[in-house]
């Protein structure tokens, strides 16, 4: 019993070592795990599959280096799908760093699908203003955005010809640590434009009610969502690379939580 009670006193450095081991292992030894696609990811996939190629998609990428691990794979998977289907999209960001990361991913993916900047995708850059900006964007895109990331007027960008307002947008994708509900309030609510969110796992629980109420057309949850999307697209990318050490780490955490609780109960019995 005394030995069991010691289970709740595992030194934190031992825990760090165990965590490091299970995380590093899959990078050294190749492991494969089955991927089960969740309902909300499938909804997102089906939404993009059914999009017409006559309108553009607004791709809001508002994440920074701090959450790169979860949202980079999501951004890449969604961009691949859009480019694969030949759907034009405009990147924008509501934080300073976001547009740069999205640009880097888009350039990489564009090379795979032979897509050209300005024709198949463009980057509006950093647009600040939250709800006011979103409402203005919905009513008049050229007036709100004016120039792209590189300083080119929107009128000179081929794919932006004839794009006036939200009726020319078939979908809005918001990839953010915590995607902004203002897109739902001020775009989906009044105009009915479908919205897909890609979020960090931590905020996913607060976004599931929007799936239930039909306000979201799909939701990608963290690395899991990215991995599921990659498997739907039929390729093994960053998501697959990160989900295996993540799964092993989760298993370790469950084991440690159980051991800790056994130790706690044993300690209580000893007292």
């Amino acid at each position: 019993m005394r030995l069991l009670a010691k289970l709740q006193e595992i030194p934190y450095r031992v825990v760090y070592l165990l965590v490091l081991t299970v995380i590093i292992l899959p990078f050294v030894i190749e492991l494969k795990l089955p991927v089960f696609v969740s309902n909300e990811t499938l909804m997102a996939y089906n939404t993009i599959e059914q999009l017409p190629d006559t309108q553009i998609v607004i791709f809001v990428s508002s994440w920074d280096a701090g959450i790169k691990g979860e949202l980079w794979p999501q951004t890449e998977a969604l961009m691949r799908h859009l480019m694969q289907r030949g759907i034009k999209f405009a990147i924008m960001s509501q934080i300073a760093q976001g547009a740069s990361f999205a640009e880097e991913i888009a350039e990489r993916v564009a090379k795979l699908y032979n897509k050209k900047y300005g024709v198949d995708w463009c980057n509006w850059g950093f647009l600040t203003g939250d709800a006011a900006m979103i409402q203005a964007l919905a009513k008049n895109i050229p007036k709100t955005v004016q120039k792209d990331f590189r300083g080119t007027p929107l009128t000179d960008i081929p794919m932006m010809q004839g794009i006036e307002d939200i009726s020319d947008v078939s979908l809005i994708i918001d990839i953010d640590y915590g995607p902004r509900p203002e897109w739902i309030s001020f775009v989906h609510g009044p105009y009915g434009t479908p919205i897909i969110f890609g979020c960090a796992s931590i905020v996913s629980s607060t976004l599931f009610p929007y799936i239930d109420s039909g306000q979201l057309a799909g939701l990608l949850v963290g690395v899991r969502g990215a991995t599921e999307y990659e498997s739907l697209l039929g390729y093994r990318g960053m998501g697959h690379k990160l989900i295996i050490p993540q799964s092993l780490a989760h298993l370790l955490i469950v084991i440690l939580v159980l051991l800790g609780n056994i130790g706690y109960l044993a300690a209580r019995k000893l007292q």
Binding site: G66, E70, I202, K241
Partner: peptide
């Protein structure tokens, strides 16, 4: 929420470890 947060924290940490192992030390594929 806690379970989901653990997922996020690990994802961010694993991304850094992946960078250190594969891109910096060139251990393993990728």
């Amino acid at each position: 929420f806690f379970g989901n947060t653990v997922m996020t924290r690990f994802a961010v940490f694993i991304d850094r470890i992946q960078f250190l192992i594969q891109q910096w030390l060139h251990i393993g594929g990728g």
